[in-house]
Nucleic acid binder design. Structure first.
Lengths: 248, 248
DNA sequence: CGCTATCTTGAGTAGCGTCAAGTCATGTGG
DNA sequence: CCACATGACTTGACGCTACTCAAGATAGCG
């Protein structure tokens, strides 16, 4: 394995997607690195991994070696309780990094499953740590990524702990909209990759409640819903709903 | 300031509590470091800061320079929304580190206030980063701390998103009990430092609900409640309540 | 084309929130 | 040291939001 450039006849080098050639540079690990630094990062980004819709990238309990950056596609991460309750802890799109929660115990506490055919870059964590010792800008960026994850989770605590169902769903739609926009897609027309049940799990609601509120938002001309296709008709209206619960 | 060893006649060196002499070594930053490494860490731990009950350690929006380790006392961190809703994001006791969420934006997203007279160690973050570049074990420990914070927050997402009021409160009591035990205190008799309202905010409940469930637990002989004094009479009973919602 | 998963909508309900009244602890100033 | 003010807590009655259960519609997939 160490010396072979190919596995099962596939050229590993070709499967590697160089960070320096990747169109996610502004979103993913290389943010803020010089060109030379990105090239050094290239050397540790392990390989591309394809994950088909419905397949797991990793499962809760498995050992942790690598972070995964989403190159394309869409993932959810979730926790499973003893009695089968599922709590979706996040939806992850291209440029976002998964697996930071596994560092603390060297095991994945949650499972990650692809909601559509997806590709990831595997980043062996110990090599990332080694590299970040030599590259302060990479070290800084890694710390910011982890901290941003903490902030994101605290935002969801705020949402789950103190917002009403309609506020939660409006916040969810606005967040998705912003993330699509940041990736060059339309902020006001997109397809949901997750089911109503998965949205509900993420937001602490039942799927029927999600469905009802989508219908209500549609009646109020805030959005148009057609199954998974969402159009945001009145962004200001949605923002007005979440206005009071925004952070000061 | 740079050269003076004293401020207002107080010897700064004396105010510094050496990590190497601190009785929190097993809980705080120095976990897993060699003796020599702990001594190097000593050199960056800035100074002790006393925070009286009700005083803020930092406020949301303030610039971020340092992490704070709780040496003694008890803190809560909280977010404030536009319309004044408060979401408590955590309770922090000795040995725990606060401020990791501020790294991402160089500002504190939440406020931290002492719930009793407390002391902290201030750790300038940029110096910690520098040191962790030279000490892989410190680097690793910092990463684990941040990751543990992510896991903790995800656990609260599970609690807020999929647990009933009684399960939440049982989980809260068991968690507190374990943390007191880990610090050498009795796991089955302790004083709450926070109000019912703060507990409610943390758990996504109203203070009346918290009060009612405390009373119900008392009727069921699971606990004894006397204002802030809590006795856990039946730990197994409490664990049975949260059993179904534990992670697999 | 039919099967299955997903979604929508309705009716009834339970759990938790709201409002209100009263008790109890804490601390402050006379 | 006591009187009083204030904040914290408890408990009850009632209401509303979101959950449960159920039936039917629709879409996606083999």
């Amino acid at each position: 394995m160490a010396t072979s450039p190919s596995v099962k006849g596939i050229n590993i080098t070709a499967l590697r997607i160089a960070c320096s050639a990747c169109n996610l540079q502004e979103l993913c690990l290389p943010i803020g690195l010089t060109r030379e630094e990105v090239e050094r990062l290239d050397a540790v980004v392990y390989r591309r991994r394809r994950v088909k819709r419905g397949e797991h990238l990793y499962r809760a309990g498995e050992g942790f070696d690598s972070l995964f950056a989403v190159r394309s596609g869409f993932f959810k991460t979730y926790l499973l309780s003893e009695d089968g309750r599922e709590q979706v802890t996040g939806f992850h799109m291209m440029g976002e990094v998964m697996g930071l929660d596994a560092i603390s115990s060297d095991r994945h506490p949650c499972s990650a499953v692809a909601l559509e055919d997806s590709e990831t870059c595997e980043v062996p964590f110990s090599e990332l740590e080694t590299l970040s010792r030599e590259m302060p800008s990479l070290q800084r960026h890694l710390h910011k990524m982890m901290s941003r994850e903490i902030v994101r989770d605290q935002g969801i605590m705020l949402l789950l702990g103190s917002m009403k169902a309609e506020e939660r769903l409006a916040a969810f739609l606005v967040n998705l909209s912003q993330r699509f926009q940041a990736r060059g897609y339309s902020p006001c027309a997109f397809n949901l990759r997750m089911t109503r049940e998965e949205i509900g799990s993420y937001l602490g609601l039942k799927l029927e409640t999600v469905s009802r509120i989508f219908s209500k938002f549609q009646e109020e001309r805030l959005i148009r819903v057609n199954n998974k296709a969402i159009q945001i008709l009145d962004p200001d209206g949605l923002n007005a709903i979440i206005g009071p619960c925004m952070l000061r």
